[in-house]
Design a protein around this nucleic acid. Structure first.
Lengths: 234, 234
DNA sequence: CCTCTTATTTATCGTTTGATCATTTATTAT
DNA sequence: ATAATAAATGATCAAACGATAAATAAGAGG
């Protein structure tokens, strides 16, 4: 199972620990990481190690027995959050032309939301974006290549337009797919960054967004592709 | 000119100061605020006062002659950023039925982007969202009431559907408008939070998004309104 | 029971950070 | 020029922070 970010580590978190004054090192480490993930998602990476320790129920110096520095703990937290949240099957789902495109997009965004529509994931992604960590750039490049470009390609096919081999996908055309993606992801931002609660069911909202998009995108894409065909390289 | 956030202060920033060893207090204060705005937008509110002072070209204690605490400076920065960025004319623009709806939406989002599609504004808005400052909640409530609900109402009118007085606007219906708004604002996030550069012209992208939205939204909204009419209160 | 190992704590160091105060120095008024 | 005003600096404090080292105590093995 290859993630969208290539990362070597693959380690399943252990089961919850019973009340014990002294923990097995592996257990303790897993426990620290698990709490640190939520802690930094809430407080940001400037969160204080003393606060984290208090929350875990240990003393602050104990953190330094398991991680040589705060930075290394944060590094570990990153891995914990961003690894294993991408299912490579999704790429073939989007391009599976035996299924109607509307179903493919709905299913993809429903399943993708299961992995990503999550307090920790969203906040940490935005935090690291603001801080300029390279993770976002890599990840979004993956989104572009493995989701948005394929969507454009499938739209071309559905609308009887030339394939990307014949006419490359232009910036504005790609922006259409970003629009769909944005209407999806912005809901997560509203919820987990802005803390807005919505009574609207996410799956239903996804279906509706896909319907609106597919019902309206054809003439716009057609125009963009025709323009692109005339001026292959701007 | 009433802002989307009700705020009392209205003070125009002065002109740039010439090289002078000693500044007029008003000038100096304006200068500090102007630099602090960019500084906190970059670094976040945990940015150090010493770094800020070095950047301004003054000593750190001088900040405390103009602001009693770091917190008060941040408060001032908030006001500077969020006041005067809302044009009340936009509300009447959206509801001006003498103009085609497509033009209204395109014009609104083009003009709105002039005010909001900005490094400082976007980053600070997201920062304060993560930190749980109340500004976001108030602001987005304004967006909902002054932009998204009106859009839903105008869509109802354009599609010959009952007005919100007869059938109230449901959550999922509102979510459609959030979708348009998200496809717009997510582009700003990509650029200023994730630091992704796009060759796509923003105004063109807005026009395309509005076109896709208007061309595809009708059947979905119709279905939602009909469902809503049957079950007025969930 | 005693001993050994080591997980965990207590105490503390060096630095950073927001904030204060006495001093200096540029500018204005006389 | 001289005195008065206050803008700006240098020195420094107290608390907070990441990190270290020595002391404590929980658990395993004999």
């Amino acid at each position: 199972m290859t993630g969208l970010l290539d990362s070597p580590k693959t380690k399943a978190p252990k089961a919850a620990a019973p009340k014990k004054k002294r923990m097995d090192p592996d257990e303790r480490e897993a426990h620290i990481v698990a709490e640190a993930v939520r802690f930094f998602a809430e407080q940001g990476f400037e969160g204080k190690t003393r606060d984290l320790a208090k929350r875990i129920g240990i003393t602050q110096p104990l953190l330094y027995r398991y991680f040589p520095s705060k930075e290394s703990l944060i590094e570990r937290v990153y891995q914990e959050v961003y690894v294993q949240r991408w299912n490579p099957d999704w790429e073939s789902l989007i391009t599976d032309r035996q299924m109607p495109l509307a179903d493919r997009l709905s299913r993809f965004y429903r399943e993708y939301s299961r992995a990503v529509y999550d307090y920790v994931w969203v906040r940490m992604f935005v935090y690291s974006g603001l801080k300029g960590v390279d993770i976002n750039d890599r990840y979004l490049r993956g989104i572009k290549d493995k989701v948005l470009r394929p969507i454009c390609t499938e739209l071309r096919h559905a609308h009887g337009l030339p394939s990307p081999n014949e006419v490359p996908i232009g910036e504005q055309e790609l922006e259409l797919a970003w629009g769909l993606h944005g209407s999806f992801f912005y809901r997560a931002i509203r919820r987990y960054v802005y803390n807005l609660t919505s009574a609207a069911d996410s799956d239903v909202a996804i279906d509706n967004e896909v319907r609106v998009f597919l019902a309206g995108v054809e003439p716009v894409q057609r125009q963009l592709v025709e323009t692109q065909a005339e001026q292959p390289a701007h």
